[in-house]
Structures are given as structure tokens and as C-alpha cells.
């Protein structure tokens, strides 16, 4: 298989398979959670839960002062990673072209030097959180395969993408093929790993916020 055949395979049949598993997997897990529902609460609500739920989805994105004091590295590097990663993923024009093909609509992108910078920030932050996890005895004790696999699945697209952009290590078609392959690996395993938190975090926060709202408690 030549590099061009490999690229054609990753852009063609393999992407279709990865997309099916990713989309169907997301839908299955999400709908399953929703259908399962929550236990009915017979107590009389003090306030409506809906507004509180919505607010909590976003308010919990900001760290509590206690958390910031206890684990500043996790908070700062976590923020830097998430912003860097999302900018790289959602605002790089070739990526937007891909989203447009799948979703049917696109949006404006950012100049490549900004994307380059954001990608580097995301990678550095990922290395920082990994070292932090390995150095902290408690965190290391609590971490298992299910924590390290998502790290690798996220890091590979970033590093291969950066190498494609800067034309390093391998000829462009081979490196682009590897980049797409790493993304497909991410897509295939996404619904079945902790990476699902990308979407379920908001659902969980809504449930918590809504329950607190009913009880008239600040969330």
C-alpha cells in the first residue's frame, strides 16, 4: 500500500466506518441515559428545576476557589488544554471543511499562526497534566488504563496534525493519512471511554442543577 492509497483509505472507507461508530455510539449512549430517566421526586418543588439546571451546565465550568487552591495545575492546564484543543479542532479551516461535509454547514476560521499556537498550547498542557498525574501519588493510584487511553487518543491527533502542518517527519500524504487515522481511532473509541464526558458532563450538570433547583438550593 502506497502513502497515497493509505490516505485514500483513511479519507474514504475507514472514515465512513469511524463516523458510523462515532455517531451511532453517541446516540445510543445519550438516548439510553435519557430513556432510563431519573427516579420520580414526590416532594413538592420549592422552585422549578429547569432554569437552575441550565445555569449549572455553565456555572460549573468555572472552578471553585477551593479547587483552584488545592489543584492549581489541574485547573490551569485543564483550561489551557480545553481551549487550545477546541480552537484547533473547530477553527482550523481544513477542519471546518470536513465539518461542513458532515453537517451541511460551516463557520469562519482563524489564521493558521493562531491555530498553530493553540495546538502547541494544548499539547504542552496535556504533557503538564500527564506529568502531574504521574507525580502525584494519590492521582497515580486512582488512574488506570481508562484514564491513560483517552489521553493518548487525544494527543495523537494533535501531534500528527502539527507534524502535517509543518511537513515534518514523513511526506505529506503519509502524515495526513496518519493524522486522519488517529482521529478515526479517537472517533471509534470516543463513545466507549471517558471521552464521553465531552457531552455527558453537560447532562450530569443539568441533572444536578435541576435537582438542587427543586430543593431551593444554590448549585
Amino acid at each position: 500500500m502506497t502513502a497515497v492509497d493509505f490516505l485514500a483509505f483513511t479519507r474514504g472507507p475507514l472514515f465512513d466506518v469511524a463516523l458510523i461508530i462515532f455517531i451511532a455510539g453517541l446516540a445510543i449512549r445519550f438516548v439510553e441515559i435519557l430513556v432510563l430517566g431519573r427516579r420520580r421526586d414526590f416532594s413538592e418543588p420549592r422552585r422549578g428545576g429547569f432554569g437552575s439546571g441550565l445555569r449549572t451546565m455553565f456555572s460549573r465550568t468555572l472552578p471553585e476557589t477551593g479547587t483552584m487552591k488545592r489543584a492549581p495545575t489541574t485547573v490551569v492546564a485543564g483550561w489551557v488544554f480545553h481551549i487550545g484543543f477546541l480552537v484547533t479542532l473547530l477553527l482550523f479551516v481544513p477542519h471546518i471543511e470536513m465539518f461542513q461535509a458532515v453537517l451541511g454547514f460551516g463557520w469562519p476560521g482563524l489564521p493558521t499562526p493562531i491555530i498553530d499556537f493553540a495546538g502547541i498550547l494544548a499539547m504542552v498542557a496535556m504533557v503538564v497534566v500527564l506529568i502531574n498525574r504521574l507525580r502525584n501519588p494519590v492521582m497515580r493510584f486512582l488512574s488506570g488504563f481508562g484514564d491513560y487511553l483517552p489521553w493518548l487518543l487525544t494527543f495523537l491527533p494533535l501531534i500528527t496534525g502539527w507534524l502535517v502542518f509543518h511537513r515534518l517527519l514523513l511526506p505529506y500524504p503519509a502524515m495526513l493519512g496518519l493524522h486522519i487515522l488517529s482521529v478515526e481511532l479517537l472517533m471509534i473509541l470516543f463513545p466507549f471511554t471517558k471521552l464521553m464526558h465531552t457531552f455527558t458532563a453537560f447532562l450530569a450538570r443539568y441533572y444536578t442543577g435541576a435537582a438542587f433547583g427543586r430543593k431551593g438550593v444554590q448549585s
Partner: peptide
Amino acid sequence: LSVPTGDVARIAAVAAGAGVVAGA
């Protein structure tokens, strides 16, 4: 170059539909 070569919009729609049914 970055765009997949398959009919991805249709594939995504069908996968989402099937996923919703299977999830339910």
C-alpha cells in the same frame, strides 16, 4: 484535501437515526 470522500452527510444521518432507535 481534508474532506472525506464518502457520502458522509447521509452516513451520519443514518447512523444517528439507527443510534437513537438502538439507544431507546
